[in-house]
């Protein structure tokens, strides 16, 4: 019962903060709303018995990445937003049609699904969220994928440094 209550609050706040992220006009406030979404999702992870993922979610996303978002936005200051509303204006009817269509599709799928845990109680999944279980799955089951991902990230990091160096050079720096 307690779990249901916490889930309802966390899910509702994740959705409402998420809505705020895309509706707020001011980028700084939208980013603050994004923090709210990330924290709510971290609570959902906790409910899924995955404390490690929840902690990493807060440390990496809320604690580092969004701080850098705020940093950049605070430095760039208040700027007028580029208007995209006009282009959408003529097509708005189609947008709403698509939204309604998606909602109907979601309803139909949910009503007919045979997936476990939707209408009956979720099954016990065992230990998948502890630091140890996640570490094991990284070095046992998914080692190739894990290493490939780290290689891709390394390439991206080196590429970013090279691009930044070129940009600094073209401005007459070192």
């Amino acid at each position: 019962m307690g779990e249901r209550i916490v889930f309802t609050i966390a899910a509702a706040s994740a959705l409402s903060f998420g809505t705020l992220v895309i509706t707020l006009k001011e980028p700084f406030r939208a980013t603050v709303a994004l923090i709210g979404t990330l924290l709510s999702v971290a609570v959902l992870f906790l409910l899924l018995a995955a404390p490690f993922v929840a902690a990493i979610q807060v440390i990496v996303y809320a604690g580092a990445i969004v701080v850098l978002f705020l940093f950049v936005i605070a430095y760039l200051g208040e700027r007028p937003l580029a208007e995209i509303g006009d282009r959408l204006g003529r097509l708005q009817a189609f947008v709403w049609l698509a939204v309604i269509g998606l909602a109907i599709q979601g309803f139909v799928v949910l009503a007919n699904t045979q997936l476990p845990g939707i209408r009956d109680d979720p099954r016990e999944v065992g230990d998948i969220g502890s630091p140890e279980a996640i570490g094991r799955s990284f070095i046992d089951d998914y080692i190739v994928v894990f290493e490939a991902t780290s290689l891709a990230l390394l390439v991206a990091a080196v590429g970013a440094v090279m691009l930044a160096k070129r940009a600094v050079k073209s401005e007459g720096g070192r």
Binding site: P51, F52, A55, V58, I59, A62, G63, V67, P131
Partner: peptide
Amino acid sequence: DIEIGVLFLFALSGLGFY
């Protein structure tokens, strides 16, 4: 005594920045 005590501290210090 939580399983991820060290990470919990880092997560909270991350929130403290805000």
